[in-house]
């Protein structure tokens, strides 16, 4: 019988070309490298570890992947102090207590307090027990501490979870796993080794123009190019503490259209820079740079 398993293989046997068009349809402009890495991660059934500076679309990649595969996205946002209780499962303590109270007053017979109805599923367990192969996004995995990373590594290795009171819960199917990291802490070798690795850097001017055109079609070609050049210049040449993200580029582009700008000038940049740079020092630096030499001319020359 061609059961669910066969179908699954069928579904994932999508070609690289299919992935490319699916991403493009969703407006996610991905380079060859990103596509190949995602494709390999799907076909080899290994987690995809995405690294890169903040704001290059690491999280977005997982979301787009979930939409492309037409499946649920389960997100585990990591932070310091995240533990198994919050990532895997927890017993619904309050409900258990209420049940005890009811049993006492209503005189109901003894019931199992550790049945599934009292189990609170957290993202990891949810991903493992999902009916359809979900996309599990483990966001900013570098923010957790070493112990949790080791635990995560174990879960991602065999996709079984043992709940002492219930027994071992096995994955119905292996989820598609995407891990992102901002490299705040070195991840362990073991975790890295299990993964397909992808490093996403800020896009080139060409690519950013395409991103702008695809995400904000109201921006004219010419303006889009100027925006991409300027942002590229800010990222590469100016010593800012936080480099503008792609999302900020898009915000800025939309803002410029809203202000009826059709050719960018230093004045426009100066007035709307707070959409790109979000600290006082950076803005001051930009103002000085505009005052001293002007940025747009140089950005054009640079590109």
């Amino acid at each position: 019988m061609a059961g669910g398993g066969e179908e699954e293989v069928e579904r994932l046997a999508y070609s690289l070309e299919w992935l490319r068009s699916a991403f493009e349809k969703d407006g996610y402009i991905a380079g060859e490298e990103t596509l190949v890495s995602v494709y390999l991660s799907l076909r080899l059934g290994k987690p995809l570890l995405v690294e890169g500076p903040p704001g290059v679309g690491k999280t977005e990649l997982a979301k787009v992947l979930a939409r492309s595969l037409d499946t649920e996205l389960i997100r585990l946002q990591c932070y310091e102090g995240l533990d198994e209780n919050k990532a895997l499962y927890e017993w619904n303590y309050q409900r258990q207590l209420l049940r005890i109270q009811l049993a006492r007053t209503g005189g109901e017979g003894e019931q199992d307090l550790f049945a599934e109805e009292f189990l609170l599923e957290r993202p990891l367990l949810r991903a493992i027990r999902a009916e359809r192969k979900p996309v599990l996004l483990v966001d900013e995995v570098d923010k957790t501490d070493e112990e949790f990373e080791a635990f995560l590594f174990e879960v991602l290795s065999d996709f079984t979870v043992s709940v002492p009171e219930l027994g071992t819960l096995r994955a119905r199917q292996i989820p598609v796993v995407v891990l992102t990291s901002n490299n705040e802490r070195e991840l362990s070798d073991g975790l890295r080794r299990r993964c397909i690795y992808l490093y996403i850097d800020f896009p080139t001017v060409e690519k950013e123009v395409r991103i702008i055109r695809s995400r904000a079609p109201e921006v004219a070609e010419e303006l889009g190019r100027e925006i991409a050049q300027t942002v590229h210049y800010l990222r590469s040449q100016l010593e800012v503490t936080r480099r503008p993200s792609i999302a900020e580029t898009l915000d800025w582009a939309r803002a410029l259209v809203a202000l009826d700008v059709d050719r960018l000038s230093d004045e426009h940049l100066g007035r709307t820079a707070n959409l790109l740079l979000k600290s006082r020092d950076d803005l001051e630096l930009l103002r000085q740079e505009i005052g001293a030499r002007g940025i747009l001319g140089k950005a054009r020359g640079d590109a």
């Binding site: 490298e33 390999l40 070798d189 993964c195 397909i196 690795y197």
Partner: peptide, 11 residues
């Protein structure tokens, strides 16, 4: 891209 994704594990 394939070799990069599989052989190296750090930026």
């Amino acid at each position: 891209a394939s070799l990069r994704a599989t052989l190296i594990k750090s930026g």
